[in-house]
Amino acid sequence: MTPVLSVKDMTVRFSTPEGPVSAVNGVSFDILKGECVGIVGESGSGKSQTFMAVMGLLASNGKATGSAKFKGDELVGMKRDKLNTIRGSKMTMIFQDPMTSLTPHLKISRQLTEVLVLHKGMSERDARAKALIMLDRVKIPDAKRRLDQYPHEFSGGMRQRVMIAMALICEPELLIADEPSTALDVTVQAQILELMQELRAQGNMSIVMITHDLGVVAGLCNRVMVMYAGEFCETASVDEIFHDPQHPYTRGLVGSIPRLDKPGEERLTAIRGQPPNLQHLPKGCTFQERCDYVFDRCIAERPKLLAFAEGRGKSCHLKGFDAKGEVLR
């Protein structure tokens, strides 16, 4: 089966007055039909920029190299006109901040129907009918009246629903959601995640969920890719990531989240130090300065992401960790 999205050796570099910054350093991965993949990383790990590059949405000082194929079509370097027939209709993206992603002076109806008229050549009337169905589907109450309102008349959670409706209206094959619930309050975040879960169950659309929050990934995704300093450090099924993480960074991440369902006395296992400066990445492993198990090979040689079990990969020179959490060298 051909993957929906196939990325090979992608790098993203930004030129800044202080010199070039390597945001993404040669990542390769496939997104298969119907799967929901979580991309987890901290700020600056390159999780968003990887997919901004896929969508052709990098800032003007950014440059992507390598390959990103959407169902066989090369996206890197594709002409804007051609790219616009894919993004926004077959492959869509929703962002963290629903306020700045909607045009404030246009009614919701216009923003929803524009894609249909443009991409699918629908009549205004049919497009409006479809828009109404979509608002219902993302559970906006009183959709008929809401359709002719402006973005400022919607609350934060409702705006994010409108964004999701916009992203889904052309029935995309791939939905990229970049921290869609981060800017929202907890109770509203739960509503949006519930909606995402329903969407996932309904169709055969593939979903990429970009987030810093492992909790969000736990209930929604079937596969997780953990990013650190512009590279994937571990990829595995969602259960393996939480119950048998094999990269020291993933282990640190899982241990550093306070849990509501466990007594709160125990100390969090913090990862010491801070992420490396992307302008001066070390020669060896990018995690070496924060790793408790570092040895000479880590300093000399950057580990590659290698498969070590069925559907699992890690970029680490260690053999791994046993079930008790003891390191294997």
Partner: peptide, 23 residues
């Protein structure tokens, strides 16, 4: 409590969310 995501796939999948509506 019900809204806060728990970082454990087994717990999350089995959870019945007590959703409150609106903002």
């Amino acid at each position: 409590l019900s809204a806060a995501p728990i970082p454990d796939p087994a717990v999350e999948r089995g959870k019945k969310r007590l959703l409150i509506e609106g903002d």
